[in-house]
Amino acid sequence: MLRVESISKTFNPGTINEKKALCGVSLHLAPGDFVTVIGGNGAGKSTLLNAVAGTWPVDDGRILIDNVDVTGLPDFRRAKYIGRVFQDPMMGTAANMQLVENLALALRRGKTRTLRWGVTKAESEQYRERLAQLGLGLEDRLTVRVGLLSGGQRQAVTLLMASLMQPKLLLLDEHTAALDPKTAAKVLEISDQIVSENNLTTLMVTHNMKDAIRHGNRLIMLHEGRIVLDISGEEKKNMTVPQLLEMFHTVSGSDDANDKMLLS
């Protein structure tokens, strides 16, 4: 479903701030793969997801989604293939538009915006049902301004928005990091539900090793712009947090793992 072929990205090349964020990363995802991504701060996790989403062009390499070469397409042209949830709950929704308007925008992801009315009656019904499935009581608040919802609610809505129009690829970048533990767990549960219901091919970045092991069918670890660990199947299922930390230490060559990595 996703083929990333030795992509590289250097920020601020030729300056004192030069930073090789991705160094020839290759990654293949089969349809339905749910891959969790871990790594220390600055390892290149967000950069990898941004490269796939097309936030900026990569310096080298190719990116194919469902056999379509998207390397030369900017983010809004790749949007029809990709559903995204950002770390910041404010990023995924338009605060001063209504809940129903946000969903309607998402239903038309990647489609030409015409001069037909922005929200139809029939789709409002559909939204009500889908919102009810989230179990957050949002189904009766279709006309509320999204800015009035809590961070967790907004993140759940963003997840729903990402999946309304079935994406070929779902990108989740620490989408629960800004939430309190209870809300984070709820949003993760919703993520699992949405991914399995729609059989979505997913890349999920997390700092929580326990979550990284528990969710998905495959786990990769990034370090200094390279994939240093790629496990799946039984090997991943039987992985424990101490083992994973051990591996992290080995690749990073330091004992004091990044604070955030210890959160698990």
């Binding site: 809004f76 029809k80 338009a94 605060a95 538009m97 308007e101 309607a104 925008l105 009315w117 922005g118």
Partner: peptide, 23 residues
Amino acid sequence: GTEHGSALRATGSNGAMSRALGI
């Protein structure tokens, strides 16, 4: 109120989201 106009309002409200939705 149309799809096009909603996309315009979305652009003013949240650019990153709009691009992620293909606008």
